[in-house]
Design a binder for these strands. Structure first.
Lengths: 223, 223
DNA sequence: AAATATATTATTGTATACAATCCAAAAAAG
DNA sequence: CTTTTTTGGATTGTATACAATAATATATTT
C-alpha cells in the first residue's frame, strides 16, 4: 500500500471513530509534522477526504471535519435504505456456509468491542458488517458506494447520535445475528424486510434539532 | 468557480464526449502547458478524476483515460438499474408543470444535437436528462451518485457502445418523450417500469470491441 | 546478428520557497 | 468607551526545483 493510502486510512479512521469530532480543524503543517511527510502528501489526502464528504475545505481557511447538516444526515440514511435492502436478494444467491461463519465471527467481535466499551472498534466493526455484506452482492460499484455511506453514517452518528445509538453504535435496534439466521434460512423476503427496518430504526434514532414536538409520530411512539 | 474546477470540468467533458478516447495518455506537462497553470493544479484534477474512475493513474507512469472492463461496464448499468427506477416515485411526487416544460426542452435539444450529428453535445444532454431527473427525487446524495454513473456510462459507451447506441447516444431504444408523457399522466408504476426497461435496453446494446488510440493536440483541444 | 548491459531521456513523485489570503490583536480616531 | 483602521502572524495556494523511476536508445559482448 502506498504512503498516501496509509495516511488516508489513518485520518479517515480517526474521523469515523469520533476521535476527530465534527468541526475539528486539520491544519496541513501539523499533520505533515505528525506523519513525517511534507504538506504535499497531506494536501492530496485532505482533498480526497473532501471529495468523499468527510472533511470540508474552505478556500484559504483549510480543512475541518465535516459537520453534516440534518438534511445530509437524513439523505445518507435514505440512500442506504434505498440501496442496501435491494442488494439482499443478490447476497442470498451467493450465500455460503463460509460466509455465515465469517459474519458470525464479525458479530462476535462486535459484541466483544461493546463489552469492552471500545467505542472506536465497535464503530469500525459494525460498519464493516454492512459493507462486507453489500460486497457479497457481486457489484463492486454499488459495494463501494455502500462502503462510503457506512463511513458517512458513522460521521452522522457522531453529530446526531443518541446515547443509545452511540453506545450500541447505531445498531441497538436488534442484533445482526438475527439477519444471519434469516440468511441461513434462505428467506429472501424476510432478509430484505429486516434490513429495511434495521436502517429505518437507526435513522429514527437520530436526534435532529429541527424536529419539533408537533412532528412527533405518536402512533409509532406508543405502539 | 475556482480555476481547478474549470479545468476539471473541461477534461471530464472531453472524456465523456469521447474526444479523449479510453486509453489516451494524459501527461502532466502537456496539460499544464495547455491550461497555462503549473503541474500542481493539473495533478489535483487528475487525482480527482482517478477517484471518480474516469482516469487510472499508475505509479511513475501517469494518468490515462480509463478503459472500463466489461465487468465494470455491466456493474455501472446494473447500479443505475437498481437506483434510477426506484427514484421515480419520489420524482413523481415533486412533478410540476414547469418540470415537464424544462425536460421537454431538454428533449428538444437532444433531437437537435442528433439531427446535427453533434455527438459530443448529444452525449452531454442525454446524460443531463437522466441526472437532472434524479435530482428531482430530492436526495442530493443519491443525485450525485446517479450523476457520476451517467458520466461513467458515457465512458462505457465509448468503450463498448454499438454503432446504434453511439449514434443514438445510448438512448436509441425509445424516446425520452414517452417517459415525460407518463410522468404527466402521473402513472407511477408505468414510469418506474419504463425507466427499468430503458436502462436494461441500453445495457443490452453493449458489445465487446476494441478501440484505437491516437495522438492528441492538447493545446488545440483546450484553447 | 541476437542478447544483454549501459546510458540517455522523459515523466512522475516529493519537498520547499514564496505569494496570497485570512484572522486577530493592537493602535488610532470618534 | 466604542468603533474603525492598521499591522503582524498564521495558514493555505501555487510554482518550481530536484530526486526517483520507467522507457527508450545505444553500445558492448557472445
Amino acid at each position: 500500500m502506498s504512503d498516501d493510502e496509509k495516511i488516508y486510512k489513518k485520518i479517515l479512521k480517526a474521523i469515523v471513530e469520533h476521535q476527530l469530532p465534527p468541526g475539528s480543524r486539520l491544519p496541513e503543517d501539523k499533520l505533515s509534522e505528525a506523519f513525517g511527510v511534507s504538506r504535499t502528501g497531506i494536501r492530496k489526502v485532505l482533498h480526497r477526504l473532501a471529495l468523499e464528504h468527510f472533511v470540508v475545505i474552505t478556500r484559504n481557511k483549510g480543512a475541518q471535519v465535516n459537520h453534516p447538516s440534518e438534511e445530509e444526515a437524513l439523505e445518507v440514511f435514505d440512500s442506504r435504505i434505498l440501496v442496501e435492502p435491494q442488494l439482499m436478494s443478490a447476497v442470498l444467491k451467493h450465500w455460503k456456509k463460509e460466509n455465515s461463519d465469517h459474519f458470525r465471527d464479525i458479530v462476535t467481535q462486535e459484541r466483544l468491542a461493546q463489552e469492552n466499551s471500545d467505542l472506536a472498534g465497535s464503530i469500525q466493526i459494525t460498519a464493516r458488517f454492512h459493507y462486507e455484506l453489500a460486497r457479497l452482492a457481486g457489484n463492486s460499484v454499488l459495494a463501494a458506494f455502500v462502503e462510503q455511506l457506512c463511513y458517512r453514517s458513522s460521521l452522522v452518528i457522531a453529530a446526531f447520535g443518541t446515547v443509545s445509538s452511540v453506545g450500541g453504535v447505531s445498531c441497538d435496534c436488534g442484533d445482526h445475528v438475527q439477519l444471519l439466521d434469516l440468511l441461513d434460512k434462505g428467506d429472501s423476503e424476510a432478509v430484505q424486510q429486516w434490513m429495511l427496518e434495521h436502517l429505518q430504526s437507526i435513522k429514527g434514532s437520530l436526534i435532529l434539532a429541527g424536529q419539533d414536538e408537533q412532528n412527533i409520530d405518536f402512533n409509532r411512539l406508543f405502539s
